[in-house]
């Protein structure tokens, strides 16, 4: 079965370049602004959209994404609304893959089968669930694959050659390589070691490998794009939202523009 994600990576391979994967938190700073942000991401240069499902206790995220989640929740974001936003995005874009990223509890409470049916109907292509390692595959990973969606796993610097087959076994779509030991957006990846690890992982899988956690500049993206199949940018975009809000946390005319401008800039790096 070929998903939008598979097709996108195959197309980019023909173009001979890596994918730019952009992460923003759904509902940050509010529903309308967030929807405007994702609707403009493909035009700004995003090849794949990662949409963060806000959670009160994001244990793998740094302060920037934690705060973005809390801003969204404060503005009334829910899982139901996140799915509605994807549906709305799909009305104008049939090609750009959308991956939902987050934590298991809201999905568990929503009900796995109901969530997968609603996510598929809304036009979601894949899931990245931070707190579901391969040891918990029966919870959501296997049902997701059965539902025809991709389940994208995180591989990390602690994923050694012994562990890699376990991590990659039920992974589909692409592999998300976490470039640093730590939480999102707090450390700068060592680009040499990222390259070595990407090459090492490629020995274990034919899936595309995207690299994220700590990528903030077009120059970093350019270097990573030489060895990886995709570059994920998250915290930098979330900071662009935060830095263009009123002191009361409301959007300004610059909020959407600032995110799209940064995406365009990093897209240049990925494409050069």
């Amino acid at each position: 079965m070929t998903t939008r994600i598979d097709k996108r990576f195959a197309d980019l391979k023909k173009e001979g370049r890596a994918a730019l994967v952009t992460f923003v938190t759904a509902g940050d700073p509010d529903y309308a602004t967030s929807l405007e942000i994702i609707k403009g991401l493909p035009k700004a240069g995003a090849d794949i959209i990662e949409f963060g499902m806000p959670f009160t206790d994001p244990m793998a995220d740094g302060p920037a994404i934690q705060e973005a989640g809390l801003r969204a929740l404060k503005a009334g974001q829910t899982l139901v609304k996140t799915l509605a936003m994807v549906k709305s995005f799909r009305e104008s874009d049939q090609a750009t893959p959308v991956v939902l990223m987050g934590y298991y509890n809201p999905i568990y409470l929503y009900g796995v089968e109901r969530f997968l049916a609603d996510a598929k109907a809304a036009g979601v292509d894949g899931l990245i669930i931070v707190d579901l390692p391969p040891e918990e595959d029966e919870e959501l990973c296997l049902p997701t694959i059965k539902a025809g969606l991709n389940f994208i796993r995180l591989a990390t610097p602690t994923t050694d050659d012994k562990r890699a087959p376990t991590v990659l076994r039920n992974t589909s779509g692409f592999v998300y390589y976490v470039s640093v030991l730590g939480i999102t957006g707090t450390k700068t990846p060592d680009l040499k070691s990222v390259e070595q690890n990407v090459i090492r992982l490629k020995g274990h899988t034919k899936l595309p490998i995207a690299v994220g956690f700590g990528v903030k500049t077009a120059e970093q993206a350019r270097i990573i794009a030489k060895s990886a199949d995709g570059v994920v940018v998250g915290t930098a975009l979330v900071n662009a939202v935060k830095n263009n809000l009123t002191p009361a946390g409301k959007p300004t005319p610059e909020t959407v523009k600032a995110v799209h401008a940064l995406v365009s800039e990093i897209a240049q790096g990925v494409r050069s």
């Binding site: 707190d131 390692p133 990390t156 602690t158």
Partner: peptide
């Protein structure tokens, strides 16, 4: 119970 943690922690 179970082991609902990020992959980085799983080997640990």
């Amino acid at each position: 119970g179970g082991r609902f943690v990020a992959e980085t922690l799983m080997p640990l």
